[in-house]
């Protein structure tokens, strides 16, 4: 769609599962393979996915999920939203003890929209390895080339 829609989409994440579900067409396919979410086609399932992202209780361990848009590439019928995700006050994240360990990651979401501007196809992916690096999981290195202008650590 555009940058403004991407912001609207992420603000709806933070608002409620109901608000985010309204942005999807009745006939939709949602996928976030990093969380093993494939071929989600039911609004009830979608609402339960987004329940987590709308959590507003900093004490229940589920975390408050701060997303920021990096950019949008595409047009009104399809495109890529690039985003950054900083879960705050999580106790556990994908099985990792992250209590009091700040971390963030980045990802991208491809959307296809129908003529009414509703999402009919979503494909979301993100860098989970970056989280293992951030929380200091033993033995996991970051892959990186070294640019000629890089300053040694």
């Amino acid at each position: 769609m555009n940058y403004a829609f991407a912001v609207k989409w992420l603000k709806a994440f933070r608002d409620s599962a109901e608000a985010i579900c309204e942005l999807y067409a009745d006939d939709f396919v949602f996928e976030d393979p990093i969380l093993d979410q494939y071929q989600i086609r039911d609004k009830g399932d979608l609402a339960r996915i987004f329940f987590l992202y709308a959590n507003k209780d900093r004490t229940n361990g589920l975390g408050v999920h701060n997303f920021r848009i990096r950019g949008y590439e595409g047009d009104h019928r399809s495109g890529l939203i690039r985003w950054e995700w900083t879960p705050e006050d999580c106790a556990n994240f994908i099985g990792l003890d992250v209590a009091d360990k700040p971390f963030f990651t980045q990802g991208h979401t491809f959307h296809v929209y129908n003529e009414d501007g509703k999402i009919v196809r979503e494909s979301s992916w993100w860098d989970s390895g970056a989280i293992l690096n951030a929380v200091g999981y033993p033995g996991v290195h970051k892959p990186q080339f070294v640019a000629k202008t890089a300053v040694p650590a």
């Binding site: 329940f51 590439e73 099985g95 991208h108 993100w126």
Partner: peptide, 29 residues
């Protein structure tokens, strides 16, 4: 813009990464 799903790789290497199906009806979030 490319992302590889690394969770299955970490799981195949024995790391305790989990992806519970919390969207399925009846799961306790």
């Amino acid at each position: 813009s490319t992302f590889l799903n690394e969770n299955p790789l970490f799981q195949q290497l024995g790391l305790p990464i989990i992806t519970p199906h919390y969207w399925e009806e009846g799961f306790d979030p």
